[in-house]
Design a protein around this nucleic acid. Structure first.
Lengths: 233, 233
DNA sequence: GGGAACAAAAAGTCAGATTTATTTGTCACA
DNA sequence: TGTGACAAATAAATCTGACTTTTTGTTCCC
């Protein structure tokens, strides 16, 4: 996944990024460039490049005479795919998954509604194909095959919405779905009701029924929220 | 706004970033570090830092023996606040505003529903205060005062939702609202119906009525969509 | 006790040398 | 003619050391 170690500075980030997002250095901690360069056995220039990237993610702030200060969590660019991966790999993975699932529950229904209006006929076909793939893999512990088509399905919806911001959430959704299948408990076959809903969403989009596509997708995301016990009592 | 020119590499980014996001260098264009360093009259090290930042935003890709390649728009980290600002400052500002407004319409209603469940009493008080501020500035061409309270209102909603991903959209919403007031036509006083809706949302949150808060906020965002002529025929 | 001058610390900048990976072209051999 | 290996060219990647600038804290004098 992603691009591990594209250059020395990338390798430094692969350790330093997760360390920071994991809270190893509490907000306000001060690091010094020279010290870091020594620790990672790289030149100062390489270390500076790494710091610049962390700075662009608002994970740290570099100030003269002070050093590289770790910023509080509320400043981080939590939409940066790299930051998301680092956080998902760390200890607060569960909390991160909850945040992302709530985001999904807000975005995907609207995206589905837009997809019903803007999807090309190719995208409609893709969608149907994905839904059928999900059905075909919904019984008999074929979880990987199911996941593959599930991810593809939601990617098509987000892309077909015609909104670039939605489209870019495809990777996030993929990460969340993969996380649910691999890390969390999902020994059993997927919920048949969920499978049916996906098929119906594909139908609704094909029939240009925006309202129905939105409502059905909302049911899917409500299910995702319930799996994580996120809901009102 | 933001932090212009934090170091030489920042100044380089202030021109190179907008240039790239404006499409001045079409996707696939190849830039060379040395050439750029000469053009901007900075050392190669500074140029490299700038390139690293652009690379972390997925605006460009740097490869040996090839150079710095500009990536297609679909690769960009469109949620990066810096990228958003650059694009809003450029020629496709209208398209960007539409994307962001659609995102708002998806996120804010859900955020309001969550805020009704999780808002602290201080946040409820803030919300009421903001709504009252909007009312007070809703007549007599007090657009700046209105904008100030409007931005604050939506920030509180997003923060009070308790979801960090939502909270981080505060700046985006601020940008969109400011854009509407300053750039687009808004000579007249704001729509009285919108003002009333804000007051009612504050009420709903205070009374912990999640469903009503969500529904009312959806009405607000539908209004925002209509202003930009984004809606079904 | 307050303000100005001074000193130290750390990031910021630059320039040159060197290394490394990738592409591209060439040449020999099948 | 095509294909493989090998060599050269190229531009990024890295390292190093010297120098600059800004900020902060201290000290000294009034």
């Amino acid at each position: 996944m992603s691009t591990p170690g594209r250059g020395l500075h990338g390798q430094v980030l692969d350790t330093l990024g997760p360390d920071i997002t994991a809270g190893k250095y509490p907000p306000g901690s001060v690091l010094r460039t020279d010290e870091l360069a020594q620790r990672f056995e790289v030149s100062r220039s390489v270390m500076r490049e790494a710091v610049r990237v962390l700075e662009s993610m608002h994970l740290v702030e570099s100030r003269r005479r002070v050093g590289v200060t770790v910023l509080p969590e509320c400043e981080w660019n939590v939409y940066d795919p790299q930051v998301i991966r680092w956080r998902l790999a760390g200890a607060d993975r569960p909390r991160q998954l909850r945040s992302l699932t709530v985001l999904r529950s807000a975005v995907e229904p609207v995206a589905a509604g837009l997809a019903a209006r803007h999807a090309t006929s190719e995208q409609c076909a893709e969608l149907t194909e994905c839904a059928l793939g999900m059905v075909a893999n919904s019984r008999g512990h074929k979880l990987e095959g199911y996941l593959f088509h599930d991810v593809a399905f939601h990617r098509v919806i987000l892309t077909a919405s015609g909104n670039e911001m939605f489209a870019r959430l495809g990777d996030v959704v993929a990460e969340v779905l993969a996380g649910r299948t691999h890390h969390d408990v999902m020994f059993e076959d997927p919920d048949p009701a969920a499978v049916t809903l996906h098929v119906q969403v594909a139908e609704a989009v094909r029939e240009r029924d925006a309202e129905r596509a939105e409502r059905l997708t909302r049911e899917i995301t409500v299910g995702a929220l319930q799996e994580l016990d996120i809901l009102a009592p």
